[in-house]
Computed example of a mutant assay.
Amino acid sequence: MSAGCKSQEAAASGQSSSIYVVVWATWTWFRFAGDQLQLSTEANYGFAAGAIAFLVINAFLMLIAAYRNLVLLFLTTLMEVVLVCFLLSTLNKLPYELEIAMLALVSLICIYGTLASLINFMFSQRVLPLGPPLFKEKMKSEISEELPCPVANSRLTSGLLKIAELLEEGGVCGIPTDTVYALAASCKNPQAIEKIYNIKDRPAEKPICICISSVEQLVAAKPPFSPLLWEFMRNVYPGGISCIVSKGDWLFQLGVGAAYDRVGTRDSIMIRVPDHTVTCHLCDMTGPLAITSANPSGEPDSTHHSMVINRLGHKIQGVLCDGDSNEVVASTVVNCLRIDEGIIGIVREGCVPAAKVQQIFDRVKGTML
C-alpha cells in the first residue's frame, strides 16, 4: 500500500469519524436524556432537522468513500440508514428491532475496518482486504496521456533527449529560451521549418532565425565577418539580442544543411545565442535550430509552457517544459548588415532596450578605433 493511499484513507476515515462522534453523541443524548427532560414537540423537530443535516453531510462522505475502498463505502452507507433511524426516532416512529439490527451491523463493520486498517498499516500491505474503490481517480500518468502532445521536463537529461529525438525526426517542438518560449525545428529538416509557418499561420515573407549554442560554434564555421562585427557579437552574445548578418556558404559548415533556403532571407540570416543552459544543451545535441516565438501570429508571446501546450499543443510534436519564462517579450533584433559603415538598425525592440544596444555598439566601435 503506497503512502499516498494510506494518507487518503486516513483522511477519509478522519472526516467520517469526526462527524459520526457528533452523531452518536447527539442521538445518545436524545435517546436517553430526552424522555427525562420531557422535550417539547418543537425540540423534537429541532433534532429531526439535525438528523436531516447529518443525512446530507453523510451523503458527501459516501461519495468520498466511493473513491477509497468498499469497506469505507459500506460503513458510510450503513450510517446513512442509521441516520434515517435517528430521524424516525425523533418522530417517535422507529421500530425497536430496526434500531438494534442497524447498530449491530455498524458495530461489526467498524470492528472489521479498524482491525483491517491497523493490521495493513503494521505490515505495510493489504493483509485484510478493504476492497477496491467503486470509482477510480485519474492518476498523473493518465492525465499526461490526455495532453495534446508529448511533454518533457527540461531539468532531466531524459527530457532533453526526448525533445532532441523528436526534432531529429522532423518534428516541431516548443522550447524555452532566455526570453519567451519558441517553436523549434531542426535545420536538417526543411519540411519541419515549413510546418512552423503552417502551425503559426505565419506569413511566408517573414523569415525565421537560427539558434546556436555559442559564439565559438559560429567561429568554427569561419564566416567572413569583420573584426567590428565579431567584437559586437562577443559583447551581445549570449543574451536577448538577435543579430542579422549576411548569408553565405559558411552556414553549411555551421550545420544548417538542407534548410539553407528556408531560414532567413536570400541574402541575410538572423542568429540567436540564448543565455539559457537548457536551450544551449539542446542545440549542442541537434545542431542549429530554426526558431520563432511559440504563439499564433499576431497574438502575445507564450511565457509559460502551459501556454504553448494550450495554444499549439494539438499542432506540434512536443513541448520542453521549463515553467515561467525569464522575459515577457522576445529578443531585440539588430540589423548588422551595415555595421562596417558604423551603422546598426533596431528592427524590433524587445527585452533589451534599443538605447542599451546602441551604447554597447558605440563602446565597441570606440575600442576598435
Rank of each mutant, 00 (worst) to 15 (best):
A164W: 06
V347L: 00
S17C: 12
L161Y: 10
F32H: 15
S268A: 12
T292Q: 04
K140V: 12
T179S: 09
E168R: 13
A354Q: 10
L166F: 02
S302D: 10
P95D: 13
F74M: 13
W24T: 12
C351N: 14
V256M: 00
P288T: 01
P224C: 09
S40R: 01
I52Q: 11
G46K: 08
S293N: 10
G248M: 05
S213C: 02
Q358W: 12
F47C: 05
S268I: 03
E216W: 07
G113W: 02
L78C: 06
I196W: 07
T77A: 13
L88P: 03
D275L: 05
A354D: 07
L282H: 03
I193N: 05
I316G: 02
R234I: 12
L218K: 01
K140F: 12
Y45I: 12
I269E: 00
C280Y: 00
I208H: 05
E142I: 12
L108C: 11
A104L: 04
V328Y: 08
P238A: 13
I316Q: 06
H281M: 05
I241K: 10
I241Y: 01
Q359H: 14
N326L: 15
L75S: 01
T26V: 11
D261I: 09
H281Q: 01
L167F: 08
F30Q: 07
Q8F: 06
R31Q: 13
